[in-house]
Amino acid sequence: MRILISLLLLTAPLVHAQAVLVDRIVATVDNRAITRSELDARAERSKSSRDAALDELINEYLIAKDAISKSITISDEEVDKAIQMVMDQNKISKEEFQQALVAQGYTLEGYRTSIGLQLLEFRWLAIRTSAMEKPSDEAARAKFFADQKKRFVTELRTKASITSADKSAGAVEVRP
């Protein structure tokens, strides 16, 4: 009986049983693909759900795209200054800073991109709201900017093509 089972195991097509899914596209926004590894990394870093992380990545892309179309940019020097400010505020050396980045799952290049995108978003929001009257109270001001960002992002999402593998009809089945 044992021999029979063994023979069956030998002839069964198990050749691919060890195959590993390395990565796959889980969502697309216009001509940008978001992969599972990118989404997982973002969800882990921002300690949020995958849905929330996906929204973050989509919004980030749309804001950057809109900013570039309006010639809003951030220079390398501005990113350097912002990173220096982070080090100064935390009173840490460059080496300690790099160690902290690694501990949080960042590469220096990845962190620079992330800081650059944040600066770009601030500038984009400042320019898009430049003609608007802003409240002087700090809390009301913060709410004003949050509301405006939400409004602009909703507009951008309406004009964009967003699909997710889980939802788009006919997409390749998502494997575990």
Binding site: H16, Q18, A19, V20, I25, A171, R175
Partner: peptide, 10 residues
């Protein structure tokens, strides 16, 4: 392409 995935087979 609308979908793509990469699989490694050792």
């Amino acid at each position: 392409v609308r979908d793509a995935q990469a699989i490694a087979i050792p």
